[in-house]
């Protein structure tokens, strides 16, 4: 059982790392546009939390959400195709890197306004509680989001009405380029839970096993109807905020120290040292993940683009704006 779980964690993290590396390459080649926010360094958070959740649980995420979608089960092909802006993408090419959606897997999307996800998550949770559904909502956000009004507003309502939400803070220490000590009066995010009479705790977000265990306990609390829970995962992103950011505001020493705590390498080392997995098994997992990523890139390259500009603006097409200029009536 434990070996299966370790194998799953390692595969997820390998897939996540390789997928993001491939995305960076494709971005540099001009095949992916816009802003691209990558996840290397933070894998233990998405993997540890989502592998502790049930398939019926809902997930609301941010603009750094490729890995959340992948761990949730969205095929790598559909995620990569979305980054490429193709019709076969998980949002049919209309969303992009920051707006992955997979309603079938209850992945309710990536949102690109910092703090936008809190109200959406408590709304889903309100309905779940009203209908006495067993499912809960996992709401992801970074340390930068906790100073938005919606954080305070939504955690207040979640606690007031005992809504089934697990708030997962991916504290990677930086809101874009500003370190947490420079943006938060109380840099221990989990401590804010007490302001709403909510349970909260902090966990080492570089240790997937610790994250997984902490999430299981937190989810038990939420599922038992004891109200929401704030789980702070201390993590680090190895790259800049997005592909447009070199991350030069961080010292080389700091980055090196945190890279030495790489959650993926940490798990790999430990799995081998403890004898949970053999060298051959680990190599096989990596081969499988690499193949999946290569297939995803190939699929994205070969997929057709979307062509209908006006679909899905409204439930039915509406003539909201001015017609094309040639449609203007000619002079009599």
């Amino acid at each position: 059982m434990r070996r299966d779980l370790i194998r799953q964690f390692l595969y997820d993290m390998l897939l996540a790392r390789l997928f993001e590396q491939a995305a960076a390459e494709q971005y540099l080649q001009g095949r992916i546009g816009g802003f691209l926010h990558l996840y290397p360094g933070e894998e233990a958070v998405a993997v540890g939390t989502l592998r502790a959740a049930d398939p019926g649980d809902y997930v609301v995420s941010t603009y750094r959400e490729h890995v959340h979608a992948l761990v949730r089960g969205t095929p790598p092909e559909a995620v990569m195709a979305e980054l490429f802006g193709k019709a076969t993408g998980c949002s049919r090419g209309y969303g992009g890197s920051m707006h992955l959606f997979d309603a079938e897997r209850r992945f309710l999307g990536g949102y690109a306004i910092v703090g936008e996800t809190f109200p959406v998550a408590i709304g889903v949770a309100y309905w779940l509680r009203l209908n006495e559904e067993p499912d809960v909502v996992l709401c992801y956000f970074g340390d930068g989001a906790v100073n938005q009004g919606t954080f305070h507003e939504s955690l207040n309502m979640a606690a007031l009405w005992k809504l089934p939400v697990l708030f997962v803070c991916e504290n990677n220490r930086y809101q874009i380029g500003t370190e947490i000590h420079r943006h938060s009066a109380v840099p221990e995010v989990w401590r804010r839970a007490c302001a709403y009479g909510m349970e909260g705790r902090r966990v080492d977000g570089m240790d997937v096993l610790a994250v997984h265990e902490a999430t299981r306990e937190a989810l038990r609390h939420v599922r038992e109807g004891k109200g929401p829970f704030l789980l702070e995962c201390e993590t680090y992103r190895f790259r800049g905020h997005s592909m447009a950011d070199s991350g030069a505001y961080r010292s080389a020493l700091e980055v090196a120290e945190l890279r030495a705590r790489d959650p993926l390498e940490g798990l790999r080392r430990r799995a081998l040292a403890e004898g949970w997995l053999g060298e051959g098994e680990v190599a096989e997992l990596e081969r499988r993940a690499r193949k999946a990523v290569q297939a995803a890139v190939r699929f994205a390259e070969q997929s057709p683009p979307p062509t209908e500009l006006h679909r899905d603006v409204y439930a039915q097409p509406l003539d909201v704006y001015a017609p094309e200029i040639p449609a203007r009536r000619a002079a009599p």
């Binding site: 936008e116 109200p119 959406v120 408590i122 709304g123 949770a125 309100y126 507003e153 309502m157």
Partner: peptide, 11 residues
């Protein structure tokens, strides 16, 4: 909390 209760309804 206008932004959040509106968002609650939307979610």
């Amino acid at each position: 909390s206008e932004n959040s209760f509106t968002g609650l309804g939307i979610g």
